[in-house]
Write a protein that binds this DNA or RNA. Structure first.
Lengths: 404, 404
DNA sequence: GACACTTATTAAAAATTTAATAGAATTATA
DNA sequence: TATAATTCTATTAAATTTTTAATAAGTGTC
């Protein structure tokens, strides 16, 4: 099969992966090729068992189209979702379903300079254990916090930030194609391809977590900036509060709004005698504590609601800036913090009412992500599939090797 | 000639317009077509007298390539550069040179609801007067301030903002293809295609004028947002100064930095006895007054320099936000205010040092536009040429008609 | 039941690329 | 300094890709 044919088939596979089911006519439009051409490629894929016919779609006033979908077990993607403390590894099939077990690894990115080496070791073992043949794995997508240059394969914020090429290293050890990106960008990618921002041309995905991340869909594609650093929403100067941010500056959005800060404020407030149902908070156990606060807020605890509302209002001020600069059609609140759901909406909307020019704000939708914790996992897999039709078909792969 | 051939030739023309001179090999890369295919089209264009051979380029280690360029009189573009008070109309040839006269028309966009009707009348007369046959005019590009939706052809800020379709109207009257866009976007387009941001993938072009405009080049194309309103840099909330902006909100960047505000401050300061060489300032004659201030600053007047430095520092704070969100590679200071040139650079740089994370700021270049007043004119022409390979070749055109 | 509309398939035509070859310049080698 | 090797450009012919046009097959609407 020629390079061109192979590329076109990969493009079809990519579209079917992200859309689930598509007709030949739809694929023809999506790939910008003629119908007979698309039909031929589709029939080939059908014969080879890459895709399956999955019924007829409803008619739109003419003959009902045959729709096709990926065979779920045709191929797999390894997804790695890292945060500063915990890394989750999983394998997804062509229907975006987790197959087998999810591995949870404790990797402290800041204090452990061996984190990438350990990750690679875990990956080799995990893939062996799960028993998926390597030829069936399209690649390994990795999401991580920090300044990530996905082209150079470098994370400047962690792993000593010494500019070493993470992609090359992990590819070398695992023998599989590897792509990396910033966690917030991947969450945006997931929301755009598989979540609530599907089909949108311009969307801002705010990742409420240990910091406030931002992933952007601009003109129908994920925007990463000149060096991959776009979306540093956490550190726009928004306050004159003289609080020192962990980036070294003062007044960053993050200093008043991240889950880490909210937890700190809650503990302080309780010590000062604020009345609340919350207990057991500790800066040592951030994950648990932020959970407690959000649950309390969801259950009507006044102080918890106040804490979240304040943070939400300030995030709203930041979003107002985004709206003026980028005129998006949709704002998505995502990330672990978004679990508190509708609690965020009113204060954010309030901030927009106060700080936006009505004309530019009037067409904006604000939505809470339904993907939740799955967002980064799906994003990491999407990263591989998003570029699936760009990789050489038969990439040279060494066999899985042990790291000594 | 087939539709496809025609389209490809238009694409070649577009590239030659923006680049001046190109070899067949370069065009082949730019248009993503094979060399033989490009060569054939190029030879056709040569035979028909659309393009000319213009010498051999220097060798890069092999045979020297023949370079081609547009015949300057093959086609023309009508450029309309509007600001709130004055509109300039001109005709540019395929070498971006003004041919004939530049017409200056006083059109107050805010107070004159007939402004578009008058513009259309002026256009018809102007084109007749200049004596360029209509078949040789590719179209009319119009730049204007305000919230402009270039697809719908609507300006929501002026002309009553009643949603009437400017494009349809002017096309109807002139019988020529018309495109409209926001002035700052067009300045960015000009800087990107023909100015200091040429070849850049990600650049912010700040238009220092009666307001502070922003045009953005993102991932190698002009970004306009969901409704064409992106770049409302003037109105991001950056101050707690309680000054009411003409957008109705308080604390907008514009309330401390636009030329209008600087002029106001200067008058106030002089009344309060500040020592300065400046005289004859008046809010009535904004254009003249802002000129006086910038000249004074350029000549070392301390007060004028202070005024500009203060404004520049605050613009710098705004740019710091842009940098965090969008991670551009280049910042261009353009517009009438940029004439003060290097005076702006130091305070802007100072603000970036204070407000940017070093890692994200380290690769940023800041430059002053050399295009000056020509930027919007070139941008309006570029708007037509940028979309030249999208328009149908033989658009139905009525003959020029008089407006009664 | 005629008509319009959408999908599916086939054959013919057009677009586009690949491969092969020659020309013209630079760089390397002796 | 001459000569060979290499690199890049230009052109031609053959092969491939891709589209257009024509036709048939289902569906909904008037």
């Amino acid at each position: 099969m020629s390079e061109k044919q192979s590329l076109y088939r990969k493009s079809l596979i990519k579209h079917l992966y992200f859309s689930g089911k598509l007709s030949c006519a739809e694929l023809s439009v999506l790939t910008d090729k003629s119908l007979p051409h698309t039909a031929r490629a589709l029939n080939d894929l059908l014969e080879e068992g890459v895709i399956v016919e999955s019924g007829l779609a409803t008619s739109t006033g003419g003959r009902r189209p045959q729709v096709y979908s990926m065979k779920a077990d045709f191929m797999y993607v390894v997804s790695v979702a890292m945060d500063q403390f915990i890394t989750h590894i999983s394998i997804l099939d062509m229907a975006n379903q987790v197959v087998g077990n999810i591995e949870r690894v404790e990797l402290n990115l800041l204090t452990n300079p061996q984190a990438i080496k350990e990750l690679a070791q875990h990956l080799v073992l995990y893939i062996q254990k799960e028993g998926i043949p390597k030829e069936k794995i399209a690649g390994i997508g990795i999401g991580m916090p920090g300044f990530v240059d996905g082209l150079k394969g470098v994370n400047y914020s962690f792993f000593n930030g010494n500019g070493s090429n993470i992609i090359n290293y992990v590819e070398g050890v695992t023998g599989l194609p590897v792509m990396i990106d910033n966690d917030s960008s991947l969450i945006a990618l997931a929301e755009w391809k598989l979540g609530i921002a599907r089909q949108r041309q311009n969307a801002m995905v705010v990742n409420i977590g240990w910091g406030i991340g931002l992933g952007m869909i601009l003109d129908g594609s994920l925007f990463r900036g000149e060096n991959g650093f776009a979306g540093e929403f956490s550190h726009i100067p928004l306050f004159t509060n003289n609080k020192i941010c962990n980036c070294g500056k003062t007044g960053c959005l993050e200093t008043e709004t991240s889950l880490q800060v909210i937890t700190g404020k809650a503990i302080e407030g309780l010590q000062q005698g604020r009345i609340s149902t919350m207990k057991g908070l500790s800066t040592e156990r951030l994950e648990e504590s932020s959970r407690i606060i959000m649950d309390a807020a969801a259950n009507g605890d006044k102080y918890a609601i106040e804490l979240i509302s304040d943070a939400a209002y300030h995030i709203g001020r930041g979003i107002a800036i985004l709206i003026h600069i980028l005129n998006p059609g949709l704002i998505v609140l995502s990330g672990r913090g978004a679990i508190a759901g509708r609690l965020w909406l009113a204060p954010v909307q309030q901030a927009l009412n106060e700080h936006c020019i009505p004309k530019i704000a009037e067409n904006i939708e604000i939505k809470i992500s339904p993907l939740g914790f799955n967002a980064e996992r799906l994003g990491a897999a999407s990263l591989i599939m998003e570029h699936f039709d760009e990789l050489p078909m038969h990439r040279k792969t060494k066999s899985l090797q042990m790291v000594s």
